[in-house]
Amino acid sequence: MLKKYFFCFSAVLLFTLGLTGCATKNEDGNTDSTAIVEDPSIVESGDSMENGAIVVGDDYASPNDGLELSREQRAKLQALKQDNVIYFAFDSDAIPNNYISLLEAHADFLRTASKVTIIIEGHTDERGTPEYNIALGERRARSVAQYLLNLGVPAQQISIVSYGEEKPQLFEHNENAWKKNRRAVISY
């Protein structure tokens, strides 16, 4: 089950970084021949209910649970998990200079621990609209992914996901919260 998602995440990255070729179409509305759309899967059995509402979504499991790592690698991983957030300026996906050493530390580790995978989460503050922000969040995640690729981290260890403004770090609606919410998180 989990493996399937890993494939998708890697695919996300490959697509978003333009590493695989995909026919692009002009705005003439041609049917997209690259798209294979399966029948929708019906997910009705097994849905649990609570007070009349369907309950979905567990806490995410880490893709690296159960990996065999040396004691030294394990300690390094624990340390990196504590220092894994890049904060961005308003409306920007440029990585501020003060995060370069943070990113180098993650890249050094990922190059040596080739089985470890990361999911880079892109987030925005709440200003603007949520649909536009989820697109901006993807740009931030991609920006961090590109930086790590440039530092020699193999693409198959990296995937990205944008949450837009949906998972704020701080819940208040003010400048201070917005500053903390414009971020990318390197999640192990």
Binding site: S41, D47, I119, S162
Partner: peptide
């Protein structure tokens, strides 16, 4: 829904309470 750690589009029939990915 992000229930599978990525955004996916679903539909929900609010009468039968069945959903489709």
């Amino acid at each position: 829904s992000f229930e599978q750690r990525k955004p996916q589009i679903y539909t929900l029939d609010i009468v039968s309470r069945s959903r489709k990915l």
